[in-house]
Computed example of a mutant assay.
Amino acid sequence: MTVADYDFYKHALAGQRLPAAFVDLDALDANLADLRARAAHLPIRLVTKSVRCVAILRRVLASGAPFRGLMCYSPAEAAWLASLGFDDLLVAYPSVEPEDLRAVAAQVRAGWRITLMVDSAAQVRRIAAVASERGVVQPLAIDLDMSSDFPGLHFGVLRSPVDGPDAAVALAAEIARHPSLRLDGLMGYESQIAGLMDEVPGQGAKNAVIRLLKRRSIPEINERRRATVAALAAAGHALRFVNGGGTGSFESTREDSSVTELAAGSGLYVPTLFDHYRAFRGRPAAGFAVAVTRSPAPGIVTCAGGGYPASGPGGADRMPRPWLPAGCALVATEGAGEVQTPVRVPAGVALEPGDPLLFRHAKAGELCERFNELLLIEGGAVVDKVATYRGDGKCFF
């Protein structure tokens, strides 16, 4: 694959209106090949939250095995994608918004497979009421907590209260009490393994602690997932799928024999929060370019726009990062601004007004909330322009 340096992208983006977001299809395809190899024998459910572009979703699914089905972040999103012809949609986050549940029920009635996520009896009852009202049998999946508790430390996210076999079997029994519902699957997402970098340069001690915690967490959570699947089977609940993992945890999730499919999304674009994992190395495949507008001081250029922070705990790691030319950096006292962003440039780099300066986002799909379209680059040239969710007029949160 051609080395994508600054001149490569400057040439590719020549004549394009800036700011502009882009996806390098050659890098994307290389990342897909890596995910295939890492998944081994397991199918991969594509995570829409990390993509947010219908054309990219279609491209990945059309590439064939092992990519199969979508993991959505909103029932309204899943209903919309079903209306566009996508099938086998798993909504990864619980929702009780009546309008969205009715939209899903309408697509289920039309024959599309959409599975909603639950982790409480209250959610189950609300979904059952809508499904009964609309005359459908709504498939559900149970969200199993996959965090680990160590002395003085909760290693993972505060997600589901379903913390093991007993809670899962009790919730499955509640689902079975409603003729308008059907238990379809189980999801156990180990965020502390899949979404936490463990080989960050300059953080040797922290990396070592994180790797230690991961080594202690992995066997415990894999056994919890296996035991929960076994308990559900013993109680008479047949699951169509058991979903686990994410881009950063394929290797350890594959060790759990109860898992029937993996999930990945960030591994396509590879944002900065996925740069430093010991288990794999991805290629940056998505970014955005802003135009240099002025130079307020020696070694500093100012760009138009650029203030696109990522969600999560506030910190420097959530800021977009200057990428190309190499060696550029944000000014700590200003960061990335909504209408202008000052950037320090290294000695020997000369940028003139109108030149592009390339950034990478901290998270994958969130960048698409800032742009109506993605420029698709292949072979060093823009070959297409495709709509993001925002460009399609969709905002689900």
Rank of each mutant, 00 (worst) to 15 (best):
E190S: 03
G111N: 00
A129N: 01
G245N: 06
R68V: 05
P43D: 08
F250K: 11
A129P: 04
V47Q: 12
E220W: 10
G156Y: 12
F150Q: 13
W80F: 08
R36K: 14
V339P: 01
D24R: 11
R102H: 10
D24G: 01
D275L: 12
P271D: 05
A39T: 00
L181T: 14
A121E: 15
D29V: 03
A285S: 10
E99D: 15
P353Y: 04
I377E: 14
Y277E: 00
R283H: 13
P98V: 11
A82F: 02
S120C: 07
P151N: 02
V124W: 04
D198G: 05
S266W: 03
T253Y: 07
L262C: 01
R211T: 08
V382R: 02
E352T: 15
E352C: 04
R321N: 00
E378N: 05
D145M: 00
G69Y: 04
F155P: 10
G135W: 08
V51Q: 05
A141V: 00
M71K: 02
I114G: 05
D5H: 06
L181D: 11
L57A: 01
V130T: 13
L81H: 03
S257L: 14
I175M: 01
R281T: 15
I218R: 07
A310D: 06
A14M: 04
L324T: 14
L84F: 07
T272F: 00
D184R: 05
E352W: 08
V339I: 15
E352L: 12
G348Q: 05
F371A: 11
E366D: 15
V51P: 13
L28I: 04
A279I: 11
V136K: 02
S295L: 05
F86T: 00
L42V: 08
